[in-house]
Amino acid sequence: MAETLLFNALREAIDEEMGRDDTVFVLGEDVGVYGGSYKVTKDLYNKYGELRVLDTPIAENSFTGMAVGAAMTGLRPIIEGMNMGFLLLAFNQIANNAGMLRYTSGGNYKIPMVIRGPGGVGRQLGAEHSQRLEAYFQAVPGLKIVACSTPYNAKGLLKAAIRDDNPVLFFEHVLLYNLKEDLPNHEYVVPLDKAEIVRPGKDVTILTYSRMRHHVTQAVKGLEKKGLDPEVIDLISLKPLDFDTIGASIKKTHRVIIVEECMKTGGIGAEIIASINDRYFDELDAPVVRLSSQDIPTPYNGKLETLTIVQPKQIEAAVENMVALKV
């Protein structure tokens, strides 16, 4: 076991996969000589050379399309979005080409590519650098969307994403890069399509992902002291959703709270609620509650920013209310 920071876990995943498969390469802004804005590609340029760790000009839509073309012709690109917000500039290539081209081409081409980088609300980075984008991409056919949350799953999921033959949007969270965890010394891969049961419980199912997992974990400490026993599930895969795990939990607890960092309108939680209504309505003892961030551009002011995203106390209160059936 070796104590590893999350950004280093990601770096190890990339390094191991580049060593294992020479068609894997990294491209993006400042990924090479600079080593990545969050040092996820530190020193890989020296190890693998300038073509395999390719510093691109600031041209997001074009270098994303270039990765699509490289993937169509047999390479396995990993794009680093210096900030995932910049992907808005590449939306056409991600949606029309990475996402849809396999279908539109009648299966002529596959697009094995990973688009990864920091997303989420950081500390007073302002609206454009504090985006909650996962829901924007949710409706695009052909994309897989994954959010990592711990050093362990970050490494194992990124390795799985690199080996996947489909385009994977891989969300990291800007405030989680320095999380530490002991990682196994042996190689491991974490499947992309399985949710993770963070804490088994019986009173209520809490569905969450990315940084909100850690807010939920904080809230659970308070709830445990009050004698409550929530089940916490980290969704991991935001598309497709793992309804095997979600459904099994609902059949056990009959109550669901969704805690997400994305915006409420058209969010991941909105989709989950609709799907739960379709599949498990009869299992529910109470309407599903969702705690989402506010439908506003992330404000710069620290107090307003705190109000924008869900805080542990709110989660605690929501669980207590629900268990008391005061939903």
Binding site: R52, G65, V68, G69, A70, Q93, N97
Partner: peptide, 25 residues
């Protein structure tokens, strides 16, 4: 490619792939 210009980056990727195979591999 039906949208204006979107095929150019894809073509660039195929060309990059040729150079990658030649010079990196």
């Amino acid at each position: 490619f039906a949208f204006i210009g979107e095929g150019i980056p894809v073509a660039l990727g195929a060309a990059f792939q040729s150079r990658y195979r030649r010079d990196a591999l």
